[in-house]
Simulated assay, not measured.
Amino acid sequence: MGPAGSADPAGSASSADSAGSTAPASTASSASPSPAATGPPSPKNKTRPAWLPPKNRAEDERHLAEFQRMMLRSQRADRKKRERDQRLVVDAERQRAADAELWAGAVMPRLAEAVATPLVRQLVARSGVPDRLRHRVWPLLIGNALDVDAAACAAACAAARAAPEVARAIDRDVAALLPGLGLFQAGKPLHDVVVGVLWAAAAFRPAGHQRAAADLAGTLLLHLDAADVFAALLNLMDGPGGRPLYEPDGGHRQAFHAAFERAFARHLPELYRHLRGLGLTPADYLDPLVLPLFARHLPPDTAARVWDGLLLDRLAGARPPRRPLFRPAAAELAPFEAGLVAAALAVLAHHGPRLLGDAPGVRAAVGWDAPALAFGAGPAGAAAEVVFLRSIAGFGP
């Protein structure tokens, strides 16, 4: 016998049958259908499941026509979006091809003088530096204010040895360096090169090794000759434009954080209030973006395009006419730092609602261990990258 208060429906039915019950058969079907009851639409209706009472024919045909119109609108919208994406990508590719001819004909023959001209700024803003020219253009944009000797660089990288704790930190950072490319991890083609550069940089730099150094060195190795990477890395982090940002105990980074928060509150007020309400500070979501110059959070090709603009802004004397980004003057940002702010806001805006969760979710999206953005494959992905790059200008001064 079952528990008290329970009944066996099959047993009850058998008892009723044996007692000669005359209850009509329709009684059993009057119960509500199980939530698990599913099936195709009723043979009488094309827009209502079989377990529900049928609609009248006119209502069913009207609803079917509405559904078909809705599907047609959705298909037309999808087709128009694909066409827009395709046009955007084709136009961007044509612009890059035209700009590449200008680089070859008007810029490269007099590169040293041309890098600070309005023409180069226009070319970089439209389509960046052509991939095949970055090994010549970037060293000029970064400069060598520290007067690092090339022969000394090679000797330092070959002879450098790091203290055990520094070596462990470098190995940790190199293991996580652009994993999708498979170029820097142990046993890969550029592993020994990047480790040598980082060991030497840790010995030369007053601040020693910093986590962002691996990301910077890896990006430089993708685009520069290996012999130029050590000098470029030192000048990038300790030269006039970078040193205030990378000084671990300096007050400049705090001032930069404060300036960023003012821009954040102005451009993305809802997201700013949310992150502030979670108790997060720019050290949690801004430093992982800007200290590696976005190399951790953007695909390598996209990061290189962002670097084109940032390095041009960083070039000594390349200060185009523009109003200051922040007032008062003590809080004003140089063009390089203003570019960092604009690119960081573009990344945060691209994540959008994904940052409106809890603090661990925010760190998972834009923290030090977050994966790079994925724009997707095909024309839709290429169009999304173009839209992202163009959006950076919208967060500028």
Rank of each mutant, 00 (worst) to 15 (best):
H257A: 14
P240F: 13
R110K: 02
S15V: 04
M70R: 14
R253F: 14
L221A: 07
A162Q: 07
V89C: 01
A112F: 10
R168Q: 11
L111Y: 01
P353N: 13
A393Y: 13
A372T: 11
D173M: 04
V290P: 06
P282M: 06
A201G: 14
S21E: 10
L123E: 10
A338L: 05
L133V: 03
S30K: 00
A258M: 12
S12Y: 00
D173Y: 06
S34L: 11
V89S: 01
F256T: 14
A150P: 06
H350L: 15
R322F: 11
A255T: 11
L178S: 02
E247A: 15
D91P: 03
L220A: 11
H351V: 12
A155W: 04
G128Q: 06
P118I: 12
V115M: 05
H350C: 15
K80F: 00
D147Y: 15
G105A: 02
A344P: 09
G180R: 08
K55R: 15
D85I: 06
H63E: 14
F184V: 12
G279S: 04
A331H: 14
K80D: 01
E165F: 07
S30W: 00
P353K: 12
L111W: 00
A16P: 09
D287E: 05
L140H: 09
V387Q: 13
A92K: 05
A104W: 02
P189I: 07
S26A: 09
P371K: 15
L315R: 10
P335L: 03
A283N: 05
E61D: 07
L133G: 08
H191I: 00
A372V: 12
V290G: 02
D308E: 00
P328C: 03
A50H: 04
A365D: 09
P35H: 06
F204Y: 12
A125Q: 12
L140R: 09
P24G: 14
L280T: 14
G394Q: 11
A125H: 13
A28C: 08
S26R: 08
L236D: 08
P54N: 12
L275P: 07
G5R: 13
R62T: 11
L111R: 06
A150H: 12
L123W: 07
A151F: 13
L298A: 03
Q86E: 02
L311K: 11
A372W: 13
R84A: 01
L123A: 07
L315M: 08
V195M: 14
P324Y: 06
P189A: 10
R87Q: 05
R73N: 03
H350W: 15
D91W: 01
N144D: 13
F260P: 04
Q210R: 14
I170D: 04
L102Y: 02
Q68E: 03
V195I: 13
E59F: 03
